[in-house]
Design a protein around this nucleic acid. Sequence first.
DNA 1: GATGAATGAGAATTCATTCAT
DNA 2: TATGAATGAATTCTCATTCAT
Lengths: 188, 188, 188, 188
Amino acid sequence: MATDSHASRPGRRYDPERRERIARAAIEVVARDGIEGLTHRTVAQQADVPLGSTTYHFADKDDLLKAAAELAEDQNRETLDALLVGLLPEEDLPAALGAMVEELTVRQRAQLLLDYELFLAARSRPALRETATRWVRRAADQLSAYTDATTAASLTWALEGALVQAVVLGREIRADDATAVFRRILSG
Amino acid sequence: MATDSHASRPGRRYDPERRERIARAAIEVVARDGIEGLTHRTVAQQADVPLGSTTYHFADKDDLLKAAAELAEDQNRETLDALLVGLLPEEDLPAALGAMVEELTVRQRAQLLLDYELFLAARSRPALRETATRWVRRAADQLSAYTDATTAASLTWALEGALVQAVVLGREIRADDATAVFRRILSG
Amino acid sequence: MATDSHASRPGRRYDPERRERIARAAIEVVARDGIEGLTHRTVAQQADVPLGSTTYHFADKDDLLKAAAELAEDQNRETLDALLVGLLPEEDLPAALGAMVEELTVRQRAQLLLDYELFLAARSRPALRETATRWVRRAADQLSAYTDATTAASLTWALEGALVQAVVLGREIRADDATAVFRRILSG
Amino acid sequence: MATDSHASRPGRRYDPERRERIARAAIEVVARDGIEGLTHRTVAQQADVPLGSTTYHFADKDDLLKAAAELAEDQNRETLDALLVGLLPEEDLPAALGAMVEELTVRQRAQLLLDYELFLAARSRPALRETATRWVRRAADQLSAYTDATTAASLTWALEGALVQAVVLGREIRADDATAVFRRILSG
DNA sequence: GATGAATGAGAATTCATTCAT
DNA sequence: TATGAATGAATTCTCATTCAT
């Protein structure tokens, strides 16, 4: 017989943004504690809603994860678009990509870690596969606009590899170093 | 667990290989169920030793994980060395790397998944950092023998990116496709 | 559940058969999953009505159960009447009862299990007592038409015992075996 | 990873009778609240042990149930043996059985309800099947010693039916009424 | 009338870890 | 040295029921 509790807090019913509030709390939790830290409990606490509320709106962990991934994808798209808009017009693709790598691994590191937390989790969670696939395709498509298929693939893989190592090994990557690599690939 | 199973087995003290048996069971568990499936219980079961034995030899989960990572690193080294011994003498580095990518993502997929399970986990587990760093450095060092630093870095990143995407998106990568990329990078 | 599914369907107010639809869904659920599986949720799903609809028409679980029991009672009456109409005219009561036991434990087993699921549940659910009592009385009354009170009671108990054991132990009972018992009782 | 805590409460470790204490608590719970009331939680409370202790010794509900059924079977055997020892020597089997029915439905009602709670539950719980089958066979075997097979079956079913109705409908059954039935069956 | 969002309670499990023996 | 019993914490999930709209 659970020692009750709260009893006081008024019903606070009918919160039309409840679902979204919870989803947003979910990405905050993932950003803070990683996917392993994502539980209905931690999300409920982060969103300041009762536990039952999280299980009502997101029946299981996959639901929660999927919502988080979709929200993160939106944020990610905005961040990258903003970044690229500023960088690409320079007409120096290697430098633009190198700058982006530094930007992501240094100043936007939190966003990068969040994105990779979700992206990498896709390998064992079918619910995230779709988002992860879209993620990769978007990068490839954008680079394809500037060069041939093989070169685009090379750039994509190198970019992916750079970011993964930055994430896994806890490293920051300087624009110069990254630019040199991208320039090497495009120099042909 | 109250269910007996070792009820009969006598004390069997002083099993000098106990520690290693457990470590080997640990990588089997990780290979089968991922790191999330790694618990003292599952390892004890896989190694057919009593639960207490796993907690005795490996005080906490990180210990277990570290032992698994080190064992996997040895296996990985052997696999790659064997692979490269056969491939590198051909004097066509792009083809050798491309063949290796296909080998790993298609025929040695289990080993690849195990390695990445442990490698990627390093981002949130200090206990695995060292192994992961060594892992990356080894690859870079080996490639440095054949080319300049920037090119080696490019190859390393591209290789890493290819393998990560293969793992995360559940894809196999054909030697031809990979070779084309590596050739592009080296074609300068 | 946050998963829509009735998203499109318009308000559909004033569905005069709504109550009965739900009750019928309730016995389907009990037949499929037993009383333990009877929840407002499962019934709503089976009846394809919104969750709130089940709680609106049947305030609590007992209400739902009672409605299911009454519907099952009707079905049961029809089944047995049909059965007995065919059997009794033969003027061999033991054979008629024996045939009925086989019919119920073999061919009409689903109905038998449903009936006993509800009948036996009465022991801890006052809401079902009345139906259960009526059930037993009906059997006794019908048998009383053919014989004296003690013999009727004997037959009733034996019949009950046979069916209970068939249900609990998962057994089918052959007409011959049952007939022998009833004949023994009536042979006096 | 668990924010530690406790450290204080002395642990009350190594209770060699822990397992049995819990099993006994389980039948107390079933007797009081029925099988629906049997949860690891309620048992833990009844036995005054921590929740984890019940799940350690009895991994799932079936384990708990099986232990309860076996203990109840022992009690039941003792009760019935004691009862029959006193009754059977009289050489009037109907009267002995009739007296037993009254004894069980009136004075030993608690035991009767417990036994039937477990017996009837066997219909949907394979873990209880074996015990239930043994239960029925024991009764049949004992009666077989006094009469032919068909008569024994008749008595068994009638006895079963009487007790089931007593349990389900909440009735007490007088020795006279029951004796009349058994006498009717044996009067042939 | 009718509905579905909301929520407190609790169920079944699993586990890392401690510690008596 | 080695082990397995013990336990508190937490996790996922399900529900009956209430109530704003």
